[in-house]
């Protein structure tokens, strides 16, 4: 009896172990490699390294495009989550991997801020960009409890006293945007850093903070309920999702900021490999289904190609250097 039951238990354990390993790797989809290309790439599965936990917006974007890129690359494209350390761990991992193009970093605004902190092993020019997937302009929002309905009255209040500004975390793009905005207008804020955009919007909706910069998707529901009031958009043109909210430019302030998501590889990856990846991303971003799924998730596709994206990120980095002292105090 003893023997039998232990065998059974071992069998169950073995079954569980198989399940664990099955969870780790997705079954590789078929695909016929396109041999017509000059370089032989990809020769094995391509990893999209997401430097965040599964389930966030960045992870979601990657999982939407992975199966579509898989079709044009002819090899499995897998999402690999390497969270932690404010995205430093995943970014370091992707840029230290063998530079053969099989390890692709999902690059977000945090890349520039991490480099700015000076504690990373990589520099702003350690990457070659594949392309930008989406761009979220920052929206200036206030709590309905503040009793402010438009930008002009907001300025009056903000100049008369230091408002409580809530961010999803120290040195996140929303925080940087507030710093840059404050620098430009001379308005001073008191900063309250939370753990993520969900907490940030709850603080605003509950009237526990006065003001903040956020992106539309995360605050959409609370804006519709009137608990959070959008005041202005930090973009050149109005948002299709918020047609009645003026841009800061219209209001006489030339200020533009947003968070971006795209793909990049180590700068040591050969150019022809980079081109293949750029093609695959371009095709994926033009796919109707991808566009629809991005839009549904509140992240409208705003594709730009590799060189343009690279230029944008470098410019962003230059702009950041002016707030460096404020981040390092």
């Amino acid at each position: 009896m003893m023997r039998k039951t232990s065998k059974l238990a071992l069998a169950i354990l073995a079954g569980m172990l198989m399940f664990v390993s099955a969870c780790g790797s997705k079954p590789s989809g078929g695909g016929t490699g396109k041999t017509a290309k000059k370089v032989n790439f990809p020769t094995k599965a391509v990893d999209l390294v997401v430097p965040f936990k599964p389930g966030g917006n960045v992870d979601m974007c990657s999982r939407i495009i992975a199966p579509v890129m898989e079709k044009s690359l002819g090899q499995p494209v897998e999402v690999l989550n390497k969270p932690g350390g404010g995205a430093v761990i995943g970014q370091t991992y992707a840029l230290n991997a063998k530079p053969d193009g099989h390890t692709v970093l999902v690059l977000t605004s945090s890349f520039a801020t991490n480099v700015l902190s000076g504690n990373t092993t990589y520099k702003i020019d350690s990457v070659k960009m594949i392309g930008q997937m989406c761009y979220d302009p920052e929206v200036l929002v206030v709590s309905s409890a503040l009793g402010v309905k438009d930008y002009k009255s907001f300025l009056d209040v903000a100049k008369s006293k230091e408002l409580l500004n809530t961010t999803p975390g120290f040195s996140t793009s929303h925080h940087i945007c507030s710093l840059l905005y404050g620098q430009k207008t001379g308005i001073k804020f008191q900063y309250m850093h939370t753990n993520g955009s969900a907490e940030q919007t709850v603080e605003l909706a509950g009237g526990h903070a006065d003001v903040g910069f956020t992106t539309y998707a995360g605050a959409a529901s609370l804006i519709q309920q009137g608990k959070i009031i959008p005041i202005a958009v930090a973009n050149d043109s109005r948002l299709s999702t918020l047609p009645n909210v003026p841009t800061l430019k219209e209001l006489g302030l030339d200020f533009k900021y947003g968070s971006y998501r795209g793909l990049a590889v180590s700068s040591k990856v050969p150019d022809d490999v980079v081109e293949i990846l750029r093609d695959a991303l371009k095709k994926a971003m033009n796919d109707e289904n991808v566009k629809k799924q991005f839009a549904n998730s509140g992240l409208p596709v705003s594709y730009t190609d590799g060189p343009a994206f690279e230029k944008m990120v470098r410019e962003d980095y230059k702009g950041l250097e002016s707030v460096k002292p404020m981040l390092k105090k």
Partner: peptide
């Protein structure tokens, strides 16, 4: 409210939004 209460319900938010 449209605000996830914990990390798991944030995943539900994604799954709901993707369907428009």
């Amino acid at each position: 409210l449209g605000v996830p209460g914990n990390s798991t319900s944030a995943l539900f938010l994604g799954a709901i939004m993707i369907h428009g």
